[in-house]
């Protein structure tokens, strides 16, 4: 029982990070139909940026803030320089563009940072908390709590502000969005900026647990993509559910089978879910009234 609980804790922690990456995929995909494989690199920029800024003498809160802003700037540049000029290109072309951008970002990160693994001190101590025979790090609470806070903030933004509604409207019908006077380019840039910020926060929250390096983005992008697909691409609730599910399956796979195959779990999940339910768990069945 305690082993089970232990695995649930670690699965939820990692899953929360996958959920955030998947949310980033979802936001950008909804607004622009682009699957942004550089999404994982925002996670890296958040983590690595904070590590290096903290080492340069900035206080931790200030370092995190600057790292998030840096990720936002990279997100905006990605949109402006790589995605926007290719407007109207096929989805495969756009995917190749974002993969290229991801490789480029990793290259620059190697130069700006270095090729070593880095970590951050836990935000509130390293003494494990134990519940029911299982123990977990306080940092896990930061990850899960931070994820919840982002979900609530994102929900409030999309549901309660006119700009958030404009983002949803652009996702729903680009022509109609143009005709009501929404500056669609600005809204798409906003989607990239918000998803970059979410990715960076995820990176900062998880770095004290998992370490970070210039190339950790690849695996986060693949897991986050898997989570978004399992949940049903374009569906925010699905993204979160998919992330948590993959995190949990990974933890159980590592705990009960073998940690060697941990990373394979996410991809086996995609296959199983897409064979059984091609729309994903929460994918919308297309419903049209005449």
């Amino acid at each position: 029982m305690s082993e089970f609980l232990q695995l649930v804790f670690s699965g939820l922690t990692v899953g929360a990070v996958y959920a955030l990456v998947a949310l980033g995929f979802t936001l950008v995909y909804n607004a622009s139909d682009v699957i942004n494989f550089a999404q994982g690199d925002f996670v890296m920029i958040g983590g690595m940026g904070t590590v290096f800024l903290a080492a340069a003498g900035f206080s931790l809160p200030l370092a995190t803030l600057i790292a998030i802003l840096a990720a936002v700037v990279v997100g905006l540049l990605l949109h402006r320089l790589a995605v926007e000029p290719a407007r109207g290109a096929s989805p495969v072309t756009l995917i190749m563009i974002t993969i290229g951008a991801s490789i480029f970002i990793k290259g620059v990160a190697q130069l700006v940072f270095d090729k070593q693994f880095h970590s951050l001190p836990p935000f509130s101590g390293a003494d494990p908390i134990s519940i029911g025979g299982a123990s977990f790090l306080p940092q896990s609470l930061w990850v899960i709590g931070g994820t919840l806070a982002i979900l609530i903030a994102l929900w409030l933004f999309l549901e309660k502000t006119l700009l958030g509604k404009a983002l949803l409207a652009t996702a729903a019908n680009r022509l109609a969005a143009l005709l009501v006077g929404i500056n669609v380019r600005v809204v798409l840039a906003l989607a990239f900026a918000v998803s970059a910020a979410i990715g960076a926060v995820a990176g900062i929250l998880v770095t004290p647990i998992t370490l970070t390096r210039y190339d950790v983005g690849t695996l986060f992008a693949l897991k986050g993509f898997a989570a978004a697909m399992v949940g049903g691409m374009g569906h925010p609730v699905g993204a979160v559910a998919g992330g948590l599910l993959i995190g949990l399956m990974e933890a159980f796979g590592a705990g009960y089978v073998s940690s060697t195959y941990k990373d394979a779990v996410a991809f086996v999940m995609i296959l199983v879910v897409l064979f059984a339910m091609p729309q994903g768990l929460f994918g919308r069945r297309s419903l049209e009234r005449v």
């Binding site: 949803l168 729903a172 143009l178 009501v180 006077g181």
Partner: peptide, 30 residues
């Protein structure tokens, strides 16, 4: 396009181009 809307040209497009997932109220507010 958005500057033309600001100047007072609005269009109701052909073929029920509404914001499907959004409520009637939100569609109008947008």
């Amino acid at each position: 396009a958005h500057h033309r809307v600001a100047r007072g040209i609005a269009q109701s497009p052909e073929g029920r181009q509404v914001f499907g997932p959004l409520s009637v109220d939100d569609n109008l507010r947008l």
